[in-house]
């Protein structure tokens, strides 16, 4: 049975595309055939993060409109042959996505792929709605600040009322919290909400915390999902998240202020 995962947030710029690329790569590296779809029509950048922007011939909209087959449009990842990318169109406007069309493409993908990761655009409008509508699981990407948390809460409301599963009275979408761009130092200074604050507001299962990290920018500049940078903290955090999603029990990391921890340890 395949699973459709939507990576969503409401608020923009919180790390959805970074997360989509990382977890799609992580799932594929664990041996699961995975497709990752860019729903951000007009602003595509998943292909940049995946480093396949120069191999785009056809896109998601072409497939919906019947101008290309799915196999023509899917791009095989250069690092992992179980991973495929379906890029967004840069030239069409976002109305080219229709619910029926998206549903058809996803049904076809379900036949071939174990996991289908949908990178949602920001907002709660049409594009974001279509990205989450058919989902089985939702990764709600949240930054530790009030406005991002509020938008995630809003998105959770939509997931539980406006999705296909909700409308057809099926088992609800499984929701997971991903807290990204987390900086324990700034939490300590009171500049950011803590993990506990966010969980208290959202009461949601925490899949993992991704620290604020330079490695994310480096990864996107080199067109490699950050999870491939095994030495980096963000890469390891995403690796934990994929493992936990697949049922492994791993302790949470990157929540404590490391410097503070050592200082406490050595009484400094």
């Amino acid at each position: 049975m395949s699973r459709i995962i939507v990576v969503t947030s409401g608020k923009g710029g919180v790390g959805k595309t970074t997360t989509s690329a990382a977890i799609a790569m992580g799932l594929a590296k664990k041996g699961h055939k995975t497709a990752v779809i860019d729903f951000d029509v007009g602003l595509r950048n998943l292909d940049l993060i995946m480093g396949c922007e120069r191999r785009v011939v056809y896109d998601f909209i072409n497939v919906i409109n019947g101008e290309a087959t799915l196999n023509q449009a899917l791009i095989r990842d250069k690092n992992c042959n179980l991973l495929y990318i379906l890029p967004a169109s840069q030239t069409r406007d976002k109305d080219a996505l229709s619910q029926e069309g998206v549903g058809k493409v996803l049904d076809e993908l379900r036949k071939e792929f174990k996991y289908i990761v949908c990178d949602s655009p920001a907002g709660i409008e049409r594009g974001a709605h279509l990205a989450m509508y058919f989902a089985d699981d939702a990764f709600v990407v949240t930054n530790p600040e009030v406005s991002s948390v509020r938008d995630s809460d809003r998105m959770l409301g939509l997931l539980s009322s406006k999705s296909r599963r909700a409308e057809q009275n099926e088992e609800p979408i499984k929701e997971f919290l991903l807290l990204t761009r987390y900086s324990p130092e700034r939490v300590k200074l009171g500049e950011m909400l803590s993990v506990d604050d966010v969980q208290d507001i959202l009461s949601l299962h925490l899949l993992g915390v991704i620290p604020e990290s330079k490695s994310v920018l480096n990864a996107s500049n080199s067109g490699m999902p950050v999870i491939l940078d095994e030495k980096s903290d963000a890469g390891q955090a995403y690796d934990d998240i994929v493992a936990r999603y697949l049922g492994e029990d791993r302790p949470h990391r990157f929540i404590e202020d490391k410097k503070g921890f050592f200082r406490n340890l050595f009484g400094g």
Partner: peptide
Amino acid sequence: TQPIRSGQRIYAEGDLVILAQVSAGA
């Protein structure tokens, strides 16, 4: 039994019993 999230609105003609949280903005 489900959380009432920001942006959601519930109207009950009688009593309303909620076992989960009611978020800010709901």
